[in-house]
Simulated assay, not measured.
Amino acid sequence: MRHNILKYGVIAGLVVAAGMWGTLLAFRGDMPHGWLGMALGYLSMLVALSAVFVGIKHHRDVDRGGVVGFWPAFGLGLGISAIAAIFYVFAWELAQATVVGDFAGHYATAAIAQAKADGADAAALARLTAQMESFRLQYADPLFRLPMTFAEIFPVGVLVSLVSAAVLRNPRGLSARG
């Protein structure tokens, strides 16, 4: 089981890191903000975390003779998701150190510009500016940034693990061809 966690976790991690870097290269080092950035980010996460489903199915069909319980399958999925999330964190840290630069500053500027475009009053802009400055300072601290980055992808992995374990605990669900 550990071998499957490592193997499929590394596959998922490399795919999600490639998705992140592909987005960075497509947007010339600037991460898209708003709905486009979220859509691209979560789409690449879901594609990468399909390795959770494949890993659980492989474990069930090859290692367990076609039968796996919900909890062992869920645990396998969580392990794969954790490895993928660690790769995601390292990929983001590398991206920040090389091409992204001051992500928090760019994010804050974009949020304030969007609020202005939406017609926010001076008091709301002042509050948002203070919040964004606080965020920028917090984001500079790795003890804040690293867990926050991990928390972007890991809940998606938990959800994919839950669904995969629920589907694949049934031996007739996508059974191996014999």
Score class of each variant (00 low, 15 high):
H3G: 03
N4H: 11
A12M: 02
A17L: 10
A18S: 12
A18T: 10
A18L: 15
G19N: 13
W21D: 08
G22D: 07
F27Q: 14
G29I: 09
G34M: 11
W35G: 10
L36D: 13
A39K: 10
L40I: 14
Y42W: 09
M45N: 02
V47F: 15
A48R: 06
S50D: 10
H59G: 14
R60D: 04
R64Y: 02
R64C: 14
G65P: 02
F70L: 08
P72A: 05
G75A: 08
G77D: 03
G77M: 06
A82G: 01
I86G: 03
W92L: 09
W92Y: 09
E93Y: 04
A95E: 04
D102E: 12
G105K: 03
H106E: 14
A120I: 00
A122Q: 07
A124T: 09
L125Q: 04
L125P: 01
A126P: 00
R127H: 14
T129M: 10
A130C: 06
A140Q: 15
D141H: 12
P142D: 12
P142C: 07
P142N: 08
P142A: 06
P142G: 12
P147C: 14
T149A: 12
F154H: 03
F154A: 07
P155T: 02
V160W: 02
V163R: 13
V167F: 07
R169S: 14
P171C: 11
G173H: 08
G178D: 10
